Lab assay of single mutants.
Amino acid sequence: VTVHVDGVEYDFDNPEEALKFAKKVAEDKNGTYEVHGNQIRVT
C-alpha cells in the first residue's frame, strides 16, 4: 500500500498501518485522505 503525501510516497506492507498513518497525517495538516485501491492520497 502506498500513501502519497505532498508528492512523497510512503510504502507500507500492512494496509492497517498505512491507513493509520494516512489518518494521522491528514489530521495533523487538517486535510483529508482518499483511498483508491492500494493507493491512499492525503490532501
Rank of each mutant, 00 (worst) to 15 (best):
28 D>M: 13
34 E>D: 06
38 N>R: 09
1 V>D: 02
40 I>G: 01
16 E>Y: 08
19 L>A: 03
2 T>A: 05
33 Y>K: 02
27 E>H: 13
39 Q>F: 10
2 T>W: 05
9 E>Y: 11
41 R>P: 02
37 G>P: 04
29 K>C: 14
2 T>V: 12
38 N>G: 06
2 T>M: 06
12 F>E: 00
5 V>E: 02
9 E>V: 15
17 E>D: 14
35 V>S: 05
3 V>T: 01
7 G>K: 04
23 K>H: 06
24 K>W: 07
39 Q>A: 10
33 Y>H: 03
18 A>W: 01
16 E>S: 07
4 H>V: 15
30 N>K: 12
20 K>T: 07
33 Y>E: 02
11 D>A: 15
40 I>K: 01
2 T>Q: 07
5 V>T: 04
8 V>E: 11
19 L>R: 04
40 I>V: 06
17 E>R: 04
43 T>Y: 13
11 D>E: 14
37 G>N: 07
9 E>A: 14
37 G>Y: 04
1 V>P: 04
34 E>M: 07
14 N>Q: 06
6 D>Q: 06
29 K>N: 14
20 K>D: 15
1 V>I: 13
24 K>N: 09
26 A>E: 02
23 K>M: 10
15 P>H: 14
40 I>M: 04
15 P>T: 11
2 T>F: 06
37 G>D: 08
4 H>S: 12
9 E>Q: 14
3 V>S: 00
23 K>F: 04
5 V>N: 03
34 E>P: 01
37 G>C: 11
20 K>M: 10
24 K>S: 12
43 T>M: 13
27 E>N: 12
33 Y>C: 10
23 K>I: 11
41 R>I: 15
21 F>Q: 03
16 E>A: 08
35 V>T: 07
18 A>L: 01
42 V>A: 02
5 V>G: 01
39 Q>L: 12
12 F>R: 00
32 T>F: 13
28 D>G: 11
18 A>H: 01
14 N>S: 13
17 E>F: 05
28 D>Y: 10
25 V>P: 00
3 V>P: 00
12 F>Y: 05
34 E>G: 03
42 V>G: 01
34 E>Q: 09
29 K>T: 15
7 G>I: 02
8 V>S: 07
36 H>S: 12
14 N>Y: 06
11 D>S: 15
10 Y>Q: 02
13 D>W: 09
36 H>P: 02
10 Y>E: 02
5 V>Q: 01
34 E>V: 11
41 R>Q: 11
8 V>K: 13
15 P>R: 13
33 Y>R: 01
38 N>T: 09
